[in-house]
Write a protein that binds this DNA or RNA. Sequence first.
DNA 1: CGGTAAATTGACCTGGGTCAATAAATGTGG
DNA 2: CCACATTTATTGACCCAGGTCAATTTACCG
Lengths: 244, 244
Amino acid sequence: MSGSCFAERLGDFLALSSAEHDALARLEERERPLRRGATLIRENDPLGELFILRKGMMMSYVLLPDGSRQILRFLFPGDMIASSAMVYRDSPETVVALTDSIVCPFERSAMATLVTEHPRLAALFMVLAQMERVALTDRLAALGRTSAKARVAALLLEIRYRMRPTDRTNGDSFVLGLTQEEIGDATGLTAVHVNRMLRQIEDEGLITREAGRVTVRNEAGLASAANYIDRFTGLELGWLPAAR
Amino acid sequence: MSGSCFAERLGDFLALSSAEHDALARLEERERPLRRGATLIRENDPLGELFILRKGMMMSYVLLPDGSRQILRFLFPGDMIASSAMVYRDSPETVVALTDSIVCPFERSAMATLVTEHPRLAALFMVLAQMERVALTDRLAALGRTSAKARVAALLLEIRYRMRPTDRTNGDSFVLGLTQEEIGDATGLTAVHVNRMLRQIEDEGLITREAGRVTVRNEAGLASAANYIDRFTGLELGWLPAAR
DNA sequence: CGGTAAATTGACCTGGGTCAATAAATGTGG
DNA sequence: CCACATTTATTGACCCAGGTCAATTTACCG
């Protein structure tokens, strides 16, 4: 246990120096537990601190004037929360806990220190931001140009892959932890149609479901139905500056 | 004229030191002209350099397996192009020129140097990345949860506001420079339906059109139809480290 | 064990897609 | 500067993926 979820995440990309490790650990000195359903940040409220998610699963969303909701992102351990605090006074999005969770708050100024003293970490933050951007453009293309079935399939795969590092119950089975309404709000569909798509995906033998647990029966088929693109391989981080 | 489009962009947020100015100018030492329609980067091709757009208008898009296209972003002077080269070996997207353009290529290693020697610029890059992320989530919400009319109205406003700094012909009128098919590929609609929406928006007196030129007749009405959210104000950059 | 949230399913509706024809605009070579 | 070729814009007729509404059923919670 490295003492820092965030360091663990970054450590997937390269070996961190001990100075870098220490600097990252300083972001996670404080802890704050959240109950399932608790709101960490409310859209349009002033942003104070940033956070690292240490444990649990959370999500961010926006509400539109007509009351509909668009879920923007699901958050897993090691993710940074409220990074928009680096730019905006008020939050552009709401962040809530989907399960009991633990977050580690830190000040914007800690980010300034980190960037100044550890240029390689600064570069890594830029790398993470780019990966997130590409994940968003993948979802944009899904919402703009793919069928309801493809979007639901893509969501299943996304949750599955992002959950796996944490989830001990490996194998082909995982607990989605989302209501069908939430799946709909993430994919731009109604809960009713999500239900139909899940049934169809199940009827086609790609998955089975029992009590919130999803088992992938045909991973290749599911990936193909989802237009899945692997963004984990093909990285090129050789340009990063030296560690300090 | 500062000699650097990118410095001009960053200068909108704060006063750059002369060392910072010089460092940014070094990113734009080379120039490369592009004809209208020219492809700068092709999806899945190896990424070499990054670019700053100096002049013209470009766009990036992805193609889906069924041949449909999702336009991800329109690019204007001062925008960074191919920032995914900070992460990926191969490009996740295609980038083409919509008008005759000029780009300034630079190496990934230049980014490493910049980040190391100018921590405040590194922080500013993170700020820009966050702003882009929020712009993407705004579009995600539009595609997922708003009507065709709202999406087309939002696109008109986006192009209008992003074009304005460059466009000398100020006032309420601007040249869209996009075909209706392109508008459709950006908004997740068909060209036919874009045409209907433009007509409807015109019939409602929000805009008028003649030969590719759009004139905004009722800005408040258009903004309201678009669910427009102002992301230019309400910035909070006080946390940035000191200039070097 | 009742009570409420979530999942399912059927019946029906509509926003936006598809197809096809025409007109306007833009570009091109001569 | 003109006749022709190619995009692009427009419009009408019709279709369907996904939405809406409403009724049950099932799962979860105190």
